[in-house]
């Protein structure tokens, strides 16, 4: 019995861990989209967020006096700052200059991943490392710390308390976003802006302010996802964050624009992502043909396509994307 429980906990913990970057990215994208902005730059934002944190952690690790608190705080601040800059670039282009959102987003993805790769490669060179990645083992060890009593509480403790603090942060952020969107005046105004900016404007809501704030906050949350990924992998290696960014955007649709549903969606995506790794680890005594792992790696993408088909076919109005998603708003166009 405990064997099966252990397996379940292992699979679940693995799924949550894998899904966490997607959850951050997707929570950020949801509040951005709720303001009517389709930010396809999320993979780039996550890359910049990740590399900002990693670079800061890398240099702080080499400093003489190390303080655990600063070791956590500085990379987090750097991540938030890096992704905020990306959010501001996106906002300036799409809100102020009313550039095409799709093109801007895609450009930002290319740009962000490029920035990540550039600094990643530079630091690998600087550290004269034999490796192909930037290692931040010390920092990630601090970030990976869990509650000491978790393992003593048996099954419940393992299930509920054995995660890193950023996991709880991610879930709390998603829940807070869901609450704000549904239950507060700010959320009501934000939804109005994304649905019908002209009406929101006429009601005295500062449309551009809402668009800027939600897009920038969304980018910062997504950036945290990029950093989480780097912590999980103990460092930065080039070109690895992109797929998580795209899955985050897919998860937004899967979760029908609700951050609380995105939590479960992220666990599912996390599970599917690592299916190829999990199946043999479960020692289920099933013989798979050679090369099966390649097939399993495709599963999350296939599921995403299926989910897109299902959600697009559903007719309920509440489950549809915000009505003015992807459209620029200009008062005098009315």
């Amino acid at each position: 019995m405990s064997f099966i429980l252990d397996k379940i906990i292992y699979v679940l913990a693995n799924a949550i861990n894998n899904g966490m970057p997607i959850l951050f990215g997707s929570t950020g994208e949801i509040i951005t989209e709720k303001a009517g902005h389709l930010n396809l730059g999320i993979p780039g934002v996550m890359a910049v967020g990740g590399i900002s944190g990693v670079v800061t952690a890398f240099f702080y690790q080499q400093s003489a006096s190390k303080n655990t608190f600063l070791m956590i705080l500085l990379p987090l601040l750097a991540t938030l700052l890096g992704s905020l800059v990306m959010g501001l670039i996106y906002c300036f282009l799409t809100v102020t200059l009313r550039a095409n959102q799709n093109v801007t987003g895609l450009a930002l993805t290319t740009f962000g991943i490029g920035i990540g790769n550039f600094f990643g490669a530079s630091i690998i060179k600087l550290s004269h490392s034999e490796l192909t990645s930037v290692r931040i083992d010390e920092t990630s060890k601090v970030f990976k710390a869990t509650l000491p009593f978790a393992s003593k509480l048996g099954f419940i403790g393992e299930l509920l308390f054995s995660y890193r603090f950023l996991v709880y942060a991610g879930i709390i952020i998603a829940l807070v976003c869901a609450y704000v969107l549904k239950r507060t005046r700010v959320g009501l105004h934000l939804r109005a802006v994304g649905e019908n900016p002209a009406t929101a404007d006429a009601a005295g809501i500062n449309v551009n302010k809402y668009k800027y704030v939600s897009t920038c906050v969304g980018s910062m949350i997504a950036g945290l996802g990029g950093f989480y990924y780097c912590i999980d992998k103990n460092g930065w290696s080039n070109d690895n964050i992109g797929p998580f960014g795209w899955l985050a955007i897919a998860l937004v649709i899967f979760a029908i624009w609700r951050p609380n549903l995105a939590i479960f969606g992220s666990i599912l995506f996390g599970l599917l992502l690592n299916l190829y790794d999990l199946i043999p680890a479960l020692e289920l005594n099933i013989k798979f043909p050679h090369g099966y792992d390649k097939l399993f790696k495709m599963v999350p993408y296939i599921v995403t396509i299926v989910v897109l088909i299902i959600t697009s076919a559903r007719k309920k109005r509440e489950n549809q994307p915000p009505a003015s998603l992807g459209l620029s708003y200009f008062r005098e166009d009315r």
């Binding site: 009501l188 939804r191 109005a192 649905e195 019908n196 002209a198 009406t199 929101a200 006429a202 009601a203 109005r317 509440e318 549809q320 009505a323």
Partner: peptide, 8 residues
Amino acid sequence: HFKLVDVL
């Protein structure tokens, strides 16, 4: 022309 948000 009504100024209302449909999904609200």
